[in-house]
Simulated scan of single mutants.
Amino acid sequence: MQLYPAPDDALVPPPDRAAQTKRPRGRPPKTVDERDDGNRRQELIRAAARLFHRKGFHATSTRDIATAVGMRSGSPFYHFRSKGELLYAVMDEGMRSAIDRQRRALDIAKQTSSHPRAILAALIRNQFDVLLGPGSDFIPVMLYESRALNARQRASLLQLQSDYESAWTPVLEALHASGRLRTEVKLARLLIFGALNWAVQWYDPRKSASLNDLTAAALTLFIHED
C-alpha cells in the first residue's frame, strides 16, 4: 500500500498502447482497380459490346472479355456480378448514348430547318449512325440479345427505348397531317424502325451505299412527295 503521494509526473497515466497502435480513421487505401474503377468499368463495357456483337452473348466468355482489356479471367467480377449484368450494362449504355446523340442531332437539324421532312431525315441519319457508324456495337447487341436479360432489366430498357422513339412521334404526326405519311403514325413508326434496324444484318460499308445514300433511300420509301 502506498503511504505517500506519488510525484507529480507519476500522476500522468502511462501511454495507452492500444491508442498507439490504433489504425487511422477512414477507409483503407484503395487498390489499383478501385482507384481506376470507372475507367476499367467502361473498358469492360466497350470490350463486351464488341464481343457480344461479333460472337454473340452465349459464345462470349468472361475470359474473352477479360483478355480483351488485359485483365485476369476473374477480374471482371470485381466490376460486375455476372456476365448477364455486364450484358445489361452494355445495353443500358447503348440506349443512353443513343438518346444523347439523337438529342444533339435534333438540335442541329432544328437550327437549319423546321420542316418535318428535314427533321425526319436527321432522325433517320442519326439512327443509321447509331446502328452502323463508329462505336456501333451497343444497339445491335440490344436488338438481338435481349432475351438473355431478366424481366426487370428488360422493363428498364423498354422505358429508355420509349424515350428514344418518342422524339419521332411529333415529326411523323406532322407528316401524316400534311399527307406525306399515308400510314397511321404508330404503325409507321414500328415499320420504319423495323426496316432501319434490319440494316445491321446486311450493311457492308465496303460494298453498300453510304449512310447518306441510305437515308435518302429511306425517305423515298417512307414519305410521299407531291
Rank of each mutant, 00 (worst) to 15 (best):
L196P: 04
G84A: 09
G26P: 02
L11W: 12
A177Y: 15
R182Y: 11
R63Y: 10
L143K: 03
I124P: 01
P205L: 07
W202S: 08
E184L: 10
P140D: 01
E34I: 06
L120H: 02
R25K: 13
S113A: 11
S82N: 05
I223L: 05
A89T: 02
E225P: 08
F138D: 01
Q153H: 04
S82H: 05
A68N: 03
A188D: 09
L3C: 07
I108C: 09
L132D: 02
N39M: 13
Y164S: 03
D8V: 13
W202L: 08
L160H: 01
G94K: 03
A19N: 12
F138K: 00
A121G: 11
H115S: 10
E43F: 08
F138G: 00
Q102K: 15
H58P: 07
V185L: 06
R125G: 14
D226R: 05
S75N: 08
P76M: 01
G135I: 03
M71V: 07
L181T: 00
Q2L: 11
N197S: 12
A18Q: 11
L123T: 02
P24C: 02
R104W: 07
S113W: 12
A174N: 04
T215K: 02
E184I: 12
R189T: 05
W202A: 07
R63M: 09
S75K: 03
T112V: 11
A217E: 09
D204A: 06
H79P: 02
A89G: 02
R125K: 15
D226E: 13
H58L: 09
S156N: 14
M1W: 15
D163E: 11
D204S: 08
S178A: 05
P205F: 10
T67D: 14
L149F: 07
D213W: 14
A188Q: 10
I119K: 01
P134S: 04
R54N: 13
H53Y: 08
F77E: 05
P15K: 08
A167P: 07
M142N: 03
T62P: 02
D204T: 09
D9R: 14
P14Y: 15
R154T: 13
P170H: 04
L221S: 11
S61E: 07
P7D: 06
I223T: 05
A167T: 13
V90C: 05
R54A: 11
R35I: 10
S162D: 14
D137F: 06
T183P: 13
N197M: 10
R41P: 00
Y4D: 10
S208W: 11
L175M: 07
I192L: 03
R40H: 13
P116L: 00
A48P: 01
L214W: 07
A66C: 06
R117A: 06
S166P: 06
I192H: 00
S146V: 13
